[in-house]
Every structure is written in C-alpha cells, then in structure tokens.
Amino acid sequence: MAGRSAGYADAVAAVARAEGNLDTVSDELFRVARALEGSDELRMALSDRQIPAARRQQIVEDLLGGRACDTTTAIVSMIVAAGRSSDLAGIAREAVEINARDRGRSVAEVRTAVALTEEQSGRLSAALSAAAGHQVEVKLIVDPGVMGGVVATIGDEVIDGSVRHRLSQLRDAF
C-alpha cells in the first residue's frame, strides 16, 4: 500500500515540478485529503465503483473547480478515476514530504481542536524546528477529537500535548 502511494506521489511530484507548482499542488492535495477524511459521504461517493468513473471525476471537478489549480484538479480526478481515492491521503502525505525534502525540510503534521492563528502557527513551527533540530514545515489539521492542545507528528516521532492524550493517561493511571 505504502509502495503504491509512494509511486503515485513520485508521479504527482514529477508532474507538479514539470508544471512548476509542486508547493501549491502538494498543499492542495493535503487539503483535499483532509476534506475527504472529514466527510464519509464524499469518501464513499468517490470510492464507489458502482458509480461510473466519469461521474466521480465530475464530482471532483465540481468540488475543486475554481478552488484549486488545474494541476491539482487533474491529479485528483485521475486518482479517483483509477479507483485509488482511498489512497489519496497517503499520496498527499508523500507528496508533501517530497516537497519538503526538496527544500531541505521535514513535514510536521499538526492536529489541533481549533484553527491556529498565523502567529501561533509561526511560533509552533519555530518550536517544532527547534525540537527536531532542523526546519520543519507545519501542516495544520483541525481535529475536534483532540479536544484541546496540540498533537504533532514528525516522521515517526509524535509529540502529543492534547487534552485527549492527558485524559487517556489519566484513565490509564486509574
């Protein structure tokens, strides 16, 4: 599964580099993946093979048309037509990693219960870079399940300062 996602991500990165907008495409792909993650109905519609591929592509174009660049729309449409919509999150993550590596950075996937301000995001990026020992590129995800605080994932390392985690620790302590 990971190998297949990596293959698609390499292809996506190659296309985006050719178009000169890897940074934008990877970011938009990450957002699309988050949108799919947050909507069961959309995820099921795009992965339903009973629905003709043309119809699924039409849904993608209706959703992204005007909101994302043409490259991103075309890539997502192609992935959905190929029946790989369930791999979209992994492909997006790999594409973001490739983009970050191109710039000598790593990606920090940050989940918070509420959206962060620009100022908070900047401080958080600086704090995570200091903790990781190198520059990291923060990808913010609003996840109400976190309840409060922040969960940051840099590669295999997880820095969990969420209220959910503390409650879980408290539950374990009981």
Binding site: T112, A113, V114, L116, Q120, R123, L124, A126, A127, L128, A130, A131, M147, G148, G149, V150, A152, I159, G161, V163, L167
Partner: peptide
C-alpha cells in the same frame, strides 16, 4: 473540561503552553 474547552481563551492557552513546552525542549 468540555465546558472549559469551549472557551477560545482556554484553547489558545493550551496551544501556547504546548508551544512553550516544545520550544523549551
């Protein structure tokens, strides 16, 4: 906590605490 976390200030404080803790290592 649920009632407290509905307060944006509390959420902001939690994030700031996290940033401070991570930044301080």
């Amino acid at each position: 906590l649920g009632r407290s976390l509905q307060d944006p200030e509390v959420q902001r404080q939690l994030v700031d605490d996290y940033i401070a803790r991570v930044g301080s290592g």
